[in-house]
């Protein structure tokens, strides 16, 4: 499903964010990506939805070779995966419904398909009753649920999340994490970068630890393993 071979990422300022990453993530897996700040977790995530381009090496994701892809194909890659960000990245002028519908409009779905599907996903994240509100009227946890609904609405095979609970309190974090767990149980691959040791240690999933741009650990049913 996701494969990386000898992937390097060097930023224009000379920083080597990733140094020779090799990884294989199977369809339906749930993977936590952990590691100290600045170790390269975010870069790892950004490479997957092609926000960044690898400097060296090959990345295969859902039938695309992300190292060789043309500029105009990038939107196609991004449509095949759902992405959730730490800062939610909702459009502030659009309502909850419109924010989720936007991801469907992008792929030119018909309004007839959009309405029931958006309400369906909003139901999954338990926000149907707030469909007409603006993001600014919601709590952080609710905003992240909207972002999750947006990531899910086109039924992608992969969901990528960059510290989705980073801005949330522990209780809300658990709610969000349960939603990810549900999504994964329905067959969607989940790759999540996180700093939340409690969650990682409790969930007992595959853990990939990135340190100084390299993979330090890759364990099934792993633990967070850092004191921070």
């Amino acid at each position: 499903m996701i494969e990386m071979f000898e992937v390097w990422k060097t930023y224009p300022n000379g920083t080597n964010a990733l140094k020779g990453i090799n990884i294989r993530i199977e369809k339906g897996e749930f993977v936590y990506v952990v590691g100290p700040s600045g170790a390269g977790k975010s870069t790892f995530i950004k490479l997957m939805h092609r926000e960044e381009k690898p400097s060296k090496g090959q990345i295969f994701l859902g039938g695309f070779n992300l190292s060789r892809i043309k500029e105009r194909q990038i939107p196609l890659v991004r449509r095949s995966i759902g992405v959730v960000f730490q800062d939610f990245k909702l459009l502030p002028t659009l309502t909850v419904f419109e924010n989720v519908a936007f991801a469907m409009e992008v792929i030119e779905s018909s309004p007839k398909q959009i309405k029931p599907r958006v309400m369906d996903v909003l139901g999954q994240v338990k926000l149907k009753h707030k469909a007409k509100m603006l993001p600014s009227e919601l709590s952080g946890g609710e905003q992240q649920r909207v972002a999750l609904a947006r990531a899910l609405v086109n039924s992608p095979g992969i969901i990528i999340a960059d510290e989705p609970t980073g801005n949330l309190d522990p209780e809300t974090s658990w709610e969000i994490m349960k939603l990810f767990e549900e999504i994964n149980q329905r067959g969607t691959t989940v790759v999540m970068a996180t700093h939340n040791r409690e969650i990682v240690n409790t969930m007992k999933k595959r853990v990939i630890a990135i340190e100084a741009g390299q993979i330090a650990r890759d364990e099934q049913r792993g633990e967070y393993g850092y004191e921070d």
Partner: peptide, 14 residues
């Protein structure tokens, strides 16, 4: 706003 649109897979013309 434009950045978010791009991140959810909107084409430039869209």
């Amino acid at each position: 706003e434009i950045e978010i649109m791009k991140l959810v897979g909107a084409t430039n013309w869209f």
